[in-house]
Every structure is written in structure tokens, then in C-alpha cells.
Amino acid sequence: MNLEFIDALSELGKEKGIESDIIIEAIEAALISAYKKNFGSLQNVRVHIDRLSGEIKVFARKNIVEEVFDDRAEISLEDALKIKPNYELDDIVEEEVTPRDFGRIAAQTAKQVVIQRIREAERNIIYDEFCNRETDILNGTVQRVEQKNVFIDLGKIEAVLSPTEQMPGEAYKINDRLKTYIVEVKKTPKGPQVLVSRTHPGLLRRLFELEVPEIHDGIVEIKSISREAGSRSKLAVHSHNEEVDSVGACVGPKGMRVQTIVTELKGEKIDIVKWSPDIAVFISNSLSPAKVVSVNVNEEEKKALVIVPDYQLSLAIGKEGQNARLAAKLTGWKVDIKSETQAEELGLTIANNSENLEG
């Protein structure tokens, strides 16, 4: 090892963002193991690399004791004083034991350490970059499919789209371009692992933030999302500016904004409803496209009895109960839906609040 190597380490440190001292300390630690392995030594040794010249020296270290039991690790005070007259008990004596051909071993060891450290540094840089992008969406290209896992090339790293995060019925072909939502970035022995999703409600949120300037600018706020990926979603929005229609902003001119998102999600239906601080109004809106006659709320149990016209009952409940289920997720309330006829048969009071429930 020489001055050129030290200079190279310094340049490498600047390029990869690793301090040269950290690399040198790692090489020193690795050389201790290399020395013991190659020279069968059980001594306690220290390796020092001169930061200016690159010169390497190996020192055997011995503790100064009153009585020596292991001469590989201990030295008597009497013998220590022969080396230096001001030594005391419990001090450590160092003696240079650098082998003649240690340079060859050192060069090989240093190369291995540097390669390892570069890999670690690159992995850490990638981890830090993608860790800060959790809950964000990224464009990627389908690289391969293995055991139902889809591997997506994000440029610097491959992301994993597991079967549970894949949209039902969505086919993934090599070189397909996809928008995915970063759920988690994990550190593993093989480097950072990025887990992505196509089913997460956060994907829908991010797509609307990208597509609707009013959401990006904070004028329109997404209050809640309920999603059954690949089939149907509901989005509750609120405008902080009375002159801006929250639903209209999300739908866009001629429905272009929401249609772009529907296309990205392979035809998933999206209901955009107006959020309201009045829970009865919000529940009524959440059952869109069905019309609601009355909403009776139980604040303590967070339950709501919703009355709809007879001809709207199947629409309000939805296929296999989907519309009602999504409305419940969106509002956080348990929603029980009855038709006007059912309500009358059960003797339920139908509150005359249909006008208040509009919008």
C-alpha cells in the first residue's frame, strides 16, 4: 500500500460519500484478521496505516502484569522497564511485528474491504433516497414475474409488487409501464428492498394530487378514501375556497381529470363526493349515486339509519353490498339502509330532512 492508494481512497470517498478515514479504519480491522489467519498468531495485535504515506505496520500488544501466565498477551513489569523506563503496571507495551511479505496480503485485503464498503455506501444512499419517498408514487417498468411476485424497475433499484398488493384481474407484462405506491422501504442483508402497491388507497390519493392542481395547491382537500381496488372507490373532498367546487375540480373539464386516473387504474370506478361536517349530510353524499330521503344518526354508537326511495334501494346498497360498504369505510360510521316501504313496515320514523341532505 502506498501514497497513490491513499490518494485513490480520498477521491473514492468524495465520489461515493464515504470518509476515507472510515475506509482506512475498516481496512485496519480487516488486516488484523488477515494477519492472524495468515501467520497463525493468537497475539493481540494492532494494525496502523499511515494516513500520509500509506505505510502499514503491525504491532503486538501486551499488558504489563506482576506475574505472566500467557506470554502472548502479557509481559512482566521488569521486562517492560527494559523497553521503556517509565512503564507501569496495567500499561500496554507495543512491539512491531510487521511480516516482510505483509504488503501483498494487505493489498488483497484492502481491495476486498474497499469493494465491500462501496457496496454498503451505495446501498445506504439508495435506501436513504427511497426511504424518504415512502407514501409517494413512482413510475416503473415491469422487469419480470417470479412466483406471482412482480419485479418493477425503478431505475436505481427493483421494487417488489407482491400478490396481495396487485389489483384483481390486472395482468402484468414485461416492459409494461406502471405507477406504483411505495408502501415500505426495508434494509436487508442484500440491500434495500422497496415494497410497492397497486391496491393501497394512498395510490388513489397521490394520483389525484398529481392530476388536480387544486388538491396540490391545498385549495381542495381529500378528507377520506375508501377503496376496493380494481372495482370501485369513493373519495370525499372539501373545498377551502367557496368559489371552487371540490367535486368539479376533481372531475375536471368534460371529466378528463378523473378519466385519466380511471384509465391508470384499468377502469376502476371512482365516486367523488362532497365532504360535510354534518355527518348526516356526509353519509347521504357518501351513498352517491343513490338519492337519500332521510338519515337518522346515533352519535354514541356511530350508527346511521338511512332511508331511501324504494326504487333506489338496490342502487344504495350496491352489487353485493359494495356501495354501502364503501360508504361506511368512507365515513367511519356503520350504515343501515332501508327503503321507505321497509321503514314504514318496521314503524321507523322517517325524518323529513331530504332538503337538508342535498349537497
Rank of each mutant, 00 (worst) to 15 (best):
T164G: 06
K274P: 04
V142T: 05
I137D: 02
I307L: 11
A29C: 01
S41Q: 12
L178F: 05
K303Y: 04
I105C: 10
A110T: 01
V58S: 14
A60H: 08
D79W: 05
I279G: 09
K190E: 08
V262G: 01
A110E: 01
I18E: 06
H240T: 12
A110L: 02
S162P: 11
S239K: 04
L330R: 12
Y172T: 12
S41L: 07
G255W: 02
N285Y: 08
P277S: 14
N175E: 12
L81S: 06
V220D: 12
N139T: 13
D90F: 09
V183G: 00
G17W: 02
R133Q: 11
E66Q: 12
P163F: 02
V292Q: 07
L287I: 09
Y181G: 01
S276F: 01
T98W: 06
H48T: 12
S224I: 08
Q108M: 15
R227I: 06
A328N: 09
N2E: 15
S53F: 05
S284F: 05
D70K: 04
W333H: 04
R46W: 01
V273E: 09
Y311P: 04
D50A: 00
K62M: 06
V68C: 15
S231P: 00
A29G: 11
I157G: 04
V93A: 08
H216Y: 14
E301T: 05
V196L: 07
E67N: 14
G202F: 03
A34S: 12
K303I: 06
E67P: 00
V47H: 10
V113C: 03
D153Q: 07
P163C: 00
L265P: 03
K338T: 03
K319S: 14
E96T: 13
A229I: 10
T141N: 11
R257V: 07
N285Q: 11
D50E: 07
I24S: 00
R100V: 10
S246R: 11
I126H: 14
T260D: 14
A343I: 10
T164Q: 15
F69T: 14
L305R: 15
K62S: 10
Q143Y: 10
Q166M: 01
E345P: 10
R61E: 14
E209L: 10
V237Q: 13
E228C: 03
I18N: 09
N353L: 04
S226N: 11
P168W: 01
D21H: 10
E228N: 12
V47S: 07
K234T: 07
I6G: 08
H238C: 05
V308D: 01
E358G: 10
F208V: 03
I219W: 11
R205S: 13
A328F: 09
D71F: 00
Q147K: 15
I27V: 12
R51M: 07
E146A: 09
G191T: 13
K190H: 07
I270P: 04
E122C: 04
K302V: 03
A280E: 13
G359V: 15
V335L: 13
P201Y: 10
Q259S: 15
G255V: 07
E25H: 10
R51K: 12
I24D: 01
D101E: 05
I49C: 00
A159P: 05
E28C: 08
P277D: 15
G155P: 00
A249P: 03
L330D: 07
